[in-house]
Design a protein around this nucleic acid. Structure first.
Lengths: 409, 409
DNA sequence: GTGATACGTTGCCCAAGCCTACAAACCCTC
DNA sequence: GAGGGTTTGTAGGCTTGGGCAACGTATCAC
């Protein structure tokens, strides 16, 4: 239990303002005054400091408004960026995401086979080195990595990433040593829920459950009481291994009768006669909705009922406001959301069910880039006074009007 | 997102110190300096304000120490009290709990039959009125009620308390109107986990799961990231309704195959040939451990295996540090904790299982009194500057040495 | 006693948010 | 387009609360 002194106070107030403009988009100084409850002059001083540090920009006021002196718009800088990395079986994706929310770059580096840790670090470092050159006048805060597996929160050690075949790999340390940038990592689904929480379906809500169905299994994440719940070591949200049947099918961890064992993308594709590699999320959803095959429909119903058991468990346990479904789970939801609702209702306490809705994810392919960048931004958002000088030549107090648009997600 | 001004700062620092001495017991000013990181002079000023407000007392220093000037001991007052109330089927229990942790009084008012809301309010008000007279020189902060049922967090409405037969009863409003004291209420198991978290098996931990087995079902509570997770409306922690089998037994909510349907105290008592009413928790535990009946042992094993499914779900979902079992679930654990561990291990991710241990609750019969009092204290702990003047004649700056012992729980 | 150590106390400093007065920039009306 | 009403930024002084350093005080060890 730490006490708070004057420095902490200032840091906290700077943090609050930077978070507001980062998460909720640009806001006028007058709006910031109302939102924070702080005095006009205080807001002025705080914004001035953030401008001085190059973290926000003040734009000319919006013309269309009511009476009174117009208030300058405060917007997060789009020259302060984080690098988001997502290693997968068939590719490594790297993105450059600005504090303003703009995704400046998106690079997909295809891999012939699942990358080893060394390959992943080498390839990422290569791309980052190139980016550093290209983004000379940008300030690169750090790197956030979305890993499809369990990541230890304390040090970013990848405990187990089954599809990549990684076990206890010190990804963060390796990447930090190779690039010279601070690196943080977390489970991909946990970052997904962060992204949906701040910028997607869960905006403004405090209790979210997120489940994502991917080609290799089901993962998830939690927001509880307004904060992302990582659990003791960072492994929270593994809904895929919830037991939902007495069946003998096993999941990637070898456990029988789990959600991940019973509800699979593979089975859906097989029933539809589609090829796994060539089918993206939208195609699968359209095919499922369009199909009139009773076999497909039976399978969908079966999977929905199993999904309902897992969701009901989460509802009874956590009393969430919203359940967000991503990946092929969103496709299942699209086919028959009513069946899912009814099945969940039958297995939950009425009072808890009354509080919850089930909805598909709204963020598309940029989801993990945004989530991973958010992870990298966290240190800066917590302490805007920290040194973020990775570029010596960042021109401060630039009067160049931002040519990029508002947050695009 | 609220900004912080100077008043908030002071309030927060007072809050931190009051929480420390309340939760972790008395501490010297020097210890407070180290724990909070604040300056000696600041601690002096803060403690002086808390003494002035009658919330803490300074005692003469501990004699046995090293060199140096002895530091006065700061202890939470035991004349600032909350009233804890727990209505049950067969009795209403009322306790007087001091900020220091001392339980001054414990009154059990036996009921011939389950109390209606009106009876509960009338009886409680009667006891409270008497207590107010008796505790003339004490400062009564408010009333905290532990309700065996779902309680809406926003206003303390009892949504559904099945054993008491209460539905949508405005308990808090009624009791506040009748007694003139502030009243807060919450689910009993949620308060149980609060108590275990601050004063019991979960001290100092951040991610706890608590399950309590009572005569009428299984409830629970969560601590996630160091704070009690109440969920959206306050209904979180209802582990009893987690589906653990494909069986047809139903629970109190009419859901089949749930933990509460399969794992019951009643079945254990029946197998042991014991009478429900006359058997307390310790007796049941002793009888279970002592029994060499294969029927009993089979039943225990069955129940342990079902319990393991529910616990495994929680472990995969929440990655907790500790699972605390109370009531007859602790008795099951006492019979064969190894079987439970093995069964949970088989259903969880190894990385998550490695972080968790399963332990019985350590707080006994005072559990709910302490939890309910904690709920009532929360407002004061959050803002020690608030007016708590329910007694005009509270003698401040009393030099009377406290005759009561250190926290007894 | 004397020194060492640890801690409370006191007076001063400073940072940061608030307040007040005033100026600036918009709207609307005539 | 001049003037009133409204909202907001700005400048300067005020207040508050925590930090700091010097000093006083209580203990232990010898």
């Amino acid at each position: 239990m730490q006490g708070t002194n004057h420095d902490d106070l200032r840091r906290h107030n700077l943090s609050i303002i930077l978070r507001l403009v980062h998460r909720s988009g640009a806001a006028s100084r007058a709006q910031l005054t109302r939102l924070t409850g702080l005095n006009r002059s205080t807001i002025g001083a705080l914004v001035a400091e953030l401008v001085e540090r190059g973290l926000v920009e003040e734009r000319t006021p919006d013309p269309t408004r009511l009476a009174g002196r117009p208030s300058p718009i405060v917007a997060a800088s789009d020259r302060v960026v984080a690098i988001a990395v997502n290693p997968e079986i068939d590719a490594i994706t790297v993105g450059v995401v600005a504090l303003s929310g703009v995704v400046h770059r998106l690079i997909r580096y295809a891999m012939p086979s699942s990358p080893s840790i060394t390959e992943a670090v080498t390839i990422t470092t290569g791309i980052v080195t190139q980016l550093k050159r290209d983004l000379g006048e940008y300030s690169i805060i750090g790197i956030g990595v979305a890993v499809p597996g369990l990541v230890r929160a304390t040090d970013g050690l990848v405990r187990h990433a089954p599809h990549l075949g990684w076990v206890d790999e010190p990804l963060c340390d390796l990447l930090a040593a190779a690039t010279g940038l601070p690196v943080v990592a977390a489970n991909d689904a946990s970052l997904g829920v962060t992204a949906e929480h701040y910028f997607g379906a869960g905006q403004g809500l405090t209790d979210l459950v997120y489940l994502n169905g991917g080609s290799s299994g089901i993962g998830g994440g939690l927001v509880i009481g307004g904060v992302a719940a990582s659990g003791r070591a960072g492994y929270a949200g593994e809904f895929g291994h919830t037991r939902v049947s007495a069946g003998t099918n096993t999941d990637s961890a070898g456990i029988a009768g789990t959600l991940e064992a019973e509800v699979t993308r593979h089975a859906l594709l097989a029933a539809l006669g589609l090829h796994a590699g060539a089918t993206d999320a939208d195609t699968l959803e359209r095919a499922l909705v369009a199909s009139d095959s009773p076999v497909v429909r039976n399978l969908v119903n079966r999977q929905l009922d199993f999904l309902a058991i897992a969701l009901a468990g989460a509802v009874n346990m956590l009393n969430p406001q919203l359940i967000v479904l991503g990946g092929f789970l969103a496709a299942l939801h699209a086919v028959d959301s009513e069946r899912l609702n009814v099945a969940v209702a039958a297995l939950t306490l009425p009072a808890a069910f009354a509080e919850v809705s089930i909805t598909p994810a709204v963020l598309g392919s940029n989801l993990l880039m945004i989530g991973a960048a958010e992870l990298a931004f966290e240190a800066l958002l917590l302490d805007p006074q920290q040194d973020q000088g990775n570029t010596a030549g960042l021109p401060r107090l630039s009067s160049r009007a931002a040519e990029t648009a508002a947050p695009t997600f």
